[in-house]
Design a binder for these strands. Structure first.
Lengths: 194, 194
DNA sequence: TCCTTGATTGACTAATCGCTCTATAAATAT
DNA sequence: ATATTTATAGAGCGATTAGTCAATCAAGGA
């Protein structure tokens, strides 16, 4: 127990086991033992198992958002901002496959209902603003920006699934990612705008 | 027990409960009682709970595929075939929300590993062929057809999420669906082809 | 030094769950 | 009519699990 402090170690272990065996398929006792702590310690930091699951979700989301905030490109034009967001989202996903998979697993589980709507909206606020501003500037197609954002996110998810399922050589991945970004951009961008 | 025979009633009840409470969040005893059968009867038709989950998945997939096969347009040009596939996929999803949600829930669960790869590939064989043929005829962009199929499927998923989350008036849905199909088509189609 | 507070442990429990088993009834075959 | 298989029920069992609890241990403040 040197590098990570205990709550972090518990979360890291829970992530590994959850993606392998599912939420209810992993007993808290196993999380505790594989994390090298006792059963009681786990419940000292997380009152219930559900609370642990939700804490893991928000921790991962925060990590992703912080990463994207660091890599955000504030200088380029709109398209470059979108490209950056797209590129780094995928870079993070490929570097943190379990975590990215977990996000989707969580979204299709009843645990999603335990997170307040407000919390969820806040997590994607910055991205929503980006789409809203681009929409107001007529850079995007005249469709609801929420819809275009949803489609873009699912482009990322689909490409992630493709890159992780098929064994695409790592050196081809950046090219593929850029290809799909260009597809996505022509899909959502207003062609009448320079 | 009049309309549905018992295995069907069990599957229908399981679907309702699984999407509400998750796989492990719904005891077999509750499935049985809400389906109006005894615990023993459930295990008479499905040897294990896992087998029940997988049977539900394959039953839903078959129903969806049969529906799409019925609605398939064999006459029109390629784009119209794709439009039909897109449109009816969403029509079915919106008419069978629980079932469509369940498919995704299942895909992000460890139960997916219980289905042989061969079985999964067979389920999307016809659609894969459609993409392959369009690719060979240079109708699609020069990218792997598997990738383009993955992206198209995720367009459907994203639009489904949008239409079910936001309260889009039912009368606007066909328009939105067609909008997004056109986006998808310009995304995957080769513009140099008439 | 004593006291308080938080961290840590692991045995323990109450409840639950998947599944079996025995018994019986219904259907089907011979 | 008899035998054989299938359907149904529901009590019950063994195993597992989330969460508790009483007992130490460590750290720091007064």
């Amino acid at each position: 127990m040197s590098k990570l402090d205990k709550p972090e170690k518990i979360l890291a272990t829970a992530l590994k086991l959850f993606v392998a065996y599912g939420f209810h398929g992993t007993p808290t006792s196993r999380i505790a033992s594989e994390a090298g702590v006792s059963n009681g310690t786990l419940f000292h930091y997380f009152k219930t198992k559900d609370e642990l699951v939700v804490a893991l979700y928000t921790a991962i989301k925060e990590e992703l958002n912080q990463y994207l905030a660091e890599k955000a490109n504030e200088t380029g034009d709109v398209k470059e901002k979108f490209r950056n967001l797209f590129r780094y989202s995928l870079a993070w996903a490929l570097e943190n496959r379990d975590a990215f998979y977990f996000i989707q697993q969580f979204h299709f589980s009843p645990h999603l209902g335990l997170v307040p709507d407000e919390e969820i909206r806040k997590q994607s606020e910055k991205h929503r603003n980006l789409f809203q501003e681009a929409h107001d500037a007529k850079v995007l197609k005249p469709l609801p920006p929420d819809l275009l954002m949803m489609l873009s996110i699912n482009q990322i998810n689909g490409l992630f699934q493709y890159l992780t399922a098929q064994t695409v050589p790592a050196e081809n991945q950046p090219q593929r990612i850029n290809d799909v970004f260009e597809l996505t951009w022509t899909m959502i961008a207003n062609p009448e705008k320079p």
